[in-house]
Simulated scan of single mutants.
Amino acid sequence: MSAPARTGRGIVVYRWTDDTRLPTAEARLALGEALADLGVAEEVREDAQLVLSELVANAAEHACGPYEVRLQRILSEWVCEVADGDPELPQLPQFPPDLLLAPDEEKRGGGLDSLLSLLGERGRGLQIVHQLSGGEWGFCRTGKTKVAWFVVGPVAP
């Protein structure tokens, strides 16, 4: 993979269109490589890749292209952005104040049907984004585009 391009908006890590076959996997791989090159710790990279997977999948499903994944250095942190061609900001679900996937003793042993029911709920992906990013994420509008962003972590010394 070639080196990420630097623009006035940060480092462009990955671009895709509505015709791209596997944008989530490709974006996840590109971000992992870019963060490794920047010296970001493996555990932080893995969480960032999971967050990015959710945001790329949401953009591909609910928005229109073109799409772009960027890294911005803001003060002492890296911020990852996913830009798409839709200026509409999504409705955000209410996030639980406690642990997202804490075990519920009454529902243990629910089997495959219980698991599929849990995973099939809409909005679960943004709850994962919220938890893995420590609540440091959001959406903003920039002209005719929307940007989903999250804080990856501190800049390596």
Rank of each mutant, 00 (worst) to 15 (best):
D98R: 13
V56D: 07
A34V: 02
E26Y: 12
E77I: 09
L99Q: 14
E43I: 13
V51Y: 06
E105W: 05
D86N: 15
G111R: 03
P87N: 04
E46Q: 07
S114Y: 10
A34I: 06
L89V: 08
A25H: 13
I128T: 11
F95K: 14
A48P: 04
Q72F: 01
V56K: 07
G125H: 07
V51W: 06
G109V: 02
G135D: 03
L89K: 08
E77C: 05
W78F: 15
S114Q: 07
G65L: 08
P103D: 13
D98H: 15
A27S: 06
V12D: 09
L71R: 08
E77K: 10
V40Q: 00
V44G: 04
A36T: 11
E105A: 13
L116C: 09
T20Q: 08
E33P: 02
E61R: 15
G125K: 09
A48C: 05
T17E: 09
P103F: 12
E54R: 07
L89P: 08
H130Q: 05
V44K: 10
A48M: 06
V44D: 09
A60L: 09
T20W: 02
R21V: 13
K107S: 10
L89Q: 11
C80F: 06
E61N: 14
A63I: 00
A27K: 00
G109M: 01
L132H: 03
L101S: 04
E61F: 12
